[in-house]
């Protein structure tokens, strides 16, 4: 599987701003402390070659009782 492109820190800043959340410079600096772990999490997530349709649960789980 080709490596999934990960967003830059600037792009993550832009996503937060795009969501309409305004932080002070001090709070933004604190929040940016999460970016390395956030990107590691995405890297791990995309290390899995999973395709198709997402069925969160076993299909039988929510079948109506017979």
């Amino acid at each position: 599987m080709a490596e999934h492109p990960l967003p830059s820190h600037d792009e993550l800043d832009a996503r937060l701003k795009g969501a309409g959340i305004q932080l002070s410079n001090e709070e933004l600096e604190f929040f940016r402390g999460a970016y390395p772990e956030f990107l590691d999490q995405l890297k791990l997530l995309y290390s899995y070659d999973v395709t198709g349709e997402a069925y969160p649960f076993d299909v039988a789980l929510f079948q109506e009782p017979q």
Binding site: P7, R15, A19, I21, L45, V50, G52, A54, Y55
Partner: peptide, 27 residues
């Protein structure tokens, strides 16, 4: 609040990739 704000950073693609991995773990 900082943990909730992380939700602003994920894309629809990330969410669906997570659901696909979840499906695999369910299986």
């Amino acid at each position: 609040k900082f943990r909730f704000m992380l939700g602003a950073l994920y894309t629809a693609e990330d969410y669906l990739q997570a659901q696909l991995l979840r499906s695999r773990i369910c299986r």
